[in-house]
Amino acid sequence: MSLLAQRDRDRLTLHLQHALGTFVHSPREAVEEADSTFAEATTRVTAALVERRRAIGSTHEGRGTEAETEDLRLALRQYREITVRLLRM
């Protein structure tokens, strides 16, 4: 599962490709566009991770001792999967 929608990934990829393609003629503008693209990508990924954490947490937080073992197992699995993906970056 991707953190960003395909359309967002495609748009950011196009911006980055544009920056790379304009480097020879406008190096400073190319780097500025790449920086802006990176900033937007990190902002969107951070927001997606915060939302993913909220969604996982909602399956067990606030339920106290009523949280079922299966709910906790699933939450732990999801935390593990997303953390492993982050650590592989």
Rank of each mutant, 00 (worst) to 15 (best):
E51G: 05
A41Y: 14
T59G: 10
L72M: 07
H60T: 08
V31P: 01
H18I: 10
A34I: 13
L72G: 00
E33I: 12
A67G: 03
G57C: 04
T65I: 10
A41R: 14
A67Q: 02
L16N: 03
R52Y: 07
V50D: 05
H60K: 03
T65W: 08
G64F: 06
A48G: 09
E40W: 05
A67T: 08
G57I: 03
S58F: 04
S26C: 05
T22Y: 00
D10I: 00
T37E: 07
G62A: 05
E68W: 03
V50F: 07
L14N: 01
E68V: 04
V31A: 11
A19T: 04
D35H: 12
L49H: 09
E61Y: 01
V31F: 06
L72N: 01
E68L: 08
H25T: 15
P27S: 11
E66R: 12
T59D: 07
T46R: 11
S26Q: 14
V31D: 05
E68N: 02
T37F: 09
L16W: 06
G21R: 12
A39N: 13
E29I: 07
E68I: 01
E66P: 00
T42E: 13
G64N: 10
L72H: 01
L16M: 09
A47R: 15
H25P: 04
E66V: 08
F38M: 10
G64Q: 04
L72F: 01
P27Y: 08
T69F: 11
A30K: 09
T65M: 03
E66Y: 06
D35E: 13
R52M: 13
R53M: 11
A39E: 14
A30I: 10
A30D: 05
R54N: 13
R52V: 14
A47S: 13
L12I: 03
R52E: 15
G62N: 06
L49I: 15
H15M: 05
A47N: 11
E70V: 06
V24D: 13
